[in-house]
């Protein structure tokens, strides 16, 4: 963790309400497909590494920036760092990846990328996040794993 906080007064947004349980949800005979909201619920509670706030409250992740195709097993997520030079961007992306790795069925191909045009070193970060070997290696690093576990433990 850095000693200096980069962005001291970020904008904070409201949280959306808890998903309401519908009659369909209770009905055993209806299958519920994966949808945007479900993926969003998985990652919106991840904590920001700098502030005691969630990614949702900082609008780092937004429901509109998630694309999912349940039939073709594809999940695509864009996230938006609060400032273009945010050094935490990789860490945030990694946290999202790890959370989904643990929470989604393995049939999905998950892509996590920075929203185009919102970060200075967008391409480098995207490349790092797409590299399975590097993600796995990051989790072997005790200190990194510690920070990530802190971010994604609810």
């Amino acid at each position: 963790m850095p000693t200096e906080i980069e962005n001291i007064n970020p904008n904070v947004y409201g949280k959306i309400k808890e998903r309401e349980v519908t009659a369909h949800d209770e009905d055993e005979s209806v299958a519920d497909p994966f949808d945007k909201r479900e993926i969003f619920d998985l990652i919106r509670t991840i904590n920001d590494p700098e502030h005691p706030l969630t990614l949702e409250e900082l609008h780092v992740v937004q429901e509109e920036l998630i694309n999912i195709n349940d039939k073709e097993n594809d999940v695509h997520i864009n996230f938006t760092p609060t400032i273009p030079h945010c050094s935490m961007a990789t860490l945030i992306g990694l946290s999202i990846r790890v959370k989904l790795l643990r929470s989604l069925p393995s049939r999905f191909k998950v892509t996590v990328e920075i929203t185009p045009g919102t970060h200075a070193s967008e391409l480098a970060v995207n490349k790092q996040l797409a590299d399975k070997e590097r993600v796995a290696a990051a989790l072997e690093n005790k200190h990194l794993a510690e920070v990530i576990n802190q971010c994604i433990s609810v």
Binding site: L42, R102, A145, N149, I152
Partner: peptide
């Protein structure tokens, strides 16, 4: 999801 994530944190650093 809740159960599996909790199990991942068992014995993990700072889990």
């Amino acid at each position: 999801v809740k159960a599996r994530n909790a199990w991942y944190l068992v014995g993990a650093p700072s889990g």
